[in-house]
Design a protein around this nucleic acid. Structure first.
Length: 420
RNA sequence: CGGGGUGUAGUAUAUCGGUAGUAUCUAUGUUUUGGGAACAUAAGGGCCGGGUUCGAUUCCCGGCACCCCGACCA
């Protein structure tokens, strides 16, 4: 893509109404736009990142048997009444609205009940189980206080997967698989080294749920990390009894602030009982479907990556989710230089290498460099009189301080190496 | 929801009970071009409503919006 065609612009000044690093950098670099407190639009660069994150999640969900759907955002009151989750004194984050005929509706806070209801149409027999269904879908939550940039929004997309199993045993097999899938997701999106599976409160039907917590000073949660075991305990369940049951020693734990980037939990038969999602066993017995729920917010994940992987100049995207692989900068107005850059842009594009081509004219070199650092694309290639005189193009990784001049053949072979 | 704070050009900020200044951005021109270039010219502003006052962007009240701390996050 030619940067001269990109409608977004970078900003020099940090927004006055954002304190969080993720929002500050993403807004300055033109990835997102703030519409109101807790509500953000995704711009071309930001959407490319989100789509890449979604694709990684999608691949991992498909790998463990997930089937993608999209459920509606409008939900009926009757969907949530059986589990007593419609009343505002039970769930206080509802956005509610009405049809013209006064029928009450809610904007989806989550989809456990809705999907349980839907699956009644398709699950009747043990032969229909297990099934795993997921979506990327917008949730609306009327948070009393939106905060931390895109980390806690009133409108946000969530990947939510729901598992439907015959019994707890079958459920736990999948539950373990989902942990591995989640680990893969965080590893592939570049925050695996800072992300710990964390024991958290499990609600009524299971002792624990599992959160995936990424260590960062700006996190909302406090967790206790056992580095050797690679696991953590959320402060909300941190006590002697829990530590003993998990065989964790207090002295091995280090307290950290962290952000919850994923959460998996066992629902058991809470929703299937309430909504009547049952199946016939081989013996002809009627049983409730055993369910689980598995969430990740791609937007929050993106914000976390920015929080964790950035420096004083801007964002440092992991290759796997960067909006482009290469940021090609042409310096100066010399026609030979321009032509050389154009040709390189075409060559790389033909090889299906994603390039953001900074072909903007009338800009100083320093301004282009500053923009490039802010946007944070993994490879920066500079074409200038100097680089051509030195025999080619200057390549520098965003994560490194210095670059080197190389010829086009070598350049292409470097860029075609499989990433991550 | 409790507490605290802030609303001034597109953005970021300053001053002031009496003419609202600067930077950046935008437009035009000239000179620049390897780390946010220089000069010139131009355009652009007091959240909304009420009150006090000769006069309010400034003081007071209400509303709205935004930020921070805490609570909440099923």
């Amino acid at each position: 893509m030619k940067q001269s065609n990109l409608f977004t612009k970078t900003k020099k000044e940090s927004p006055a109404d954002e304190v969080s690093l993720n929002a500050e950098l993403l807004i300055k670099a033109g990835f997102i736009n703030k519409e109101m407190a807790g509500v953000y639009s995704y711009l071309p660069l930001g959407l490319r990142v989100i789509k890449k994150i979604e694709n990684i999640i999608r691949e991992e969900m498909n790998a463990i048997g997930g089937q993608e759907v999209t459920l509606s955002a409008l939900q009926e009151k009757s969907t949530w009444e059986p589990t007593n989750q419609w009343d505002d004194d039970q769930v206080d984050v509802w956005f509610k609205t009405k049809l013209k005929n006064d029928t009450e509706l809610g904007l989806a806070v989550t989809h456990e009940a809705a999907i349980t209801k839907m699956m009644k149409s398709f699950i009747q027999s043990y032969r229909d189980l297990p099934k795993y269904v997921y979506q990327f879908q917008t949730k609306f939550r009327n948070e009393t206080r939106a905060k931390s940039g895109i980390m806690r929004c009133r409108e946000f997309v969530m990947k939510d997967l729901y598992s439907f199993c015959k019994d707890e045993k079958e459920h736990l097999e999948f539950y373990e698989k989902s942990k591995e899938a989640y680990k893969n997701i965080f590893k592939r999106t570049g925050i695996g080294h800072l992300t710990y599976i964390t024991f958290a409160s499990g609600g009524i039907f299971s002792k624990f749920s599992h959160e995936f917590q990424t260590i960062t000073a700006t996190g909302e949660d406090t967790i206790y990390v056992d580095e050797n075991k690679g696991i953590a305990v959320n402060k909300e369940v941190y006590n002697d009894e829990v530590l003993e049951s998990l065989d964790i020693k207090k002295e091995d734990l280090v307290e950290n602030k962290a952000v919850e980037v994923g959460n998996i939990f066992t629902l058991s038969t809470r929703f299937s009982d309430a909504l009547g999602l049952k199946y016939k066993t081989e013996e002809g017995e009627e049983k409730s479907v055993f369910m689980g729920s598995y969430g990740i917010g791609p937007g929050r994940l993106m914000g976390t990556v920015v929080e964790v992987l950035s420096d004083d100049k801007g964002i440092i995207w992991p290759e796997s989710i960067a909006p482009f692989k290469v940021h090609l900068l042409v310096l100066g107005e010399d026609n030979n230089v321009k032509e050389s850059a154009e040709n390189l842009y075409k060559d790389l594009s033909r090889k299906n290498i994603e390039v953001l081509f900074d072909d903007r004219t009338g800009m100083s070199a320093g301004e282009k460099f500053a923009d490039s650092d802010l946007i944070g694309i993994p490879y920066r290639i500079v074409v200038s009189k100097r680089s051509l005189a030195d025999g080619g193009f200057e390549v520098k990784k965003r994560s490194e301080q210095t670059g080197k001049i190389i010829a086009i053949e070598e350049l292409i072979s470097i860029l075609l190496e499989p990433s991550n």
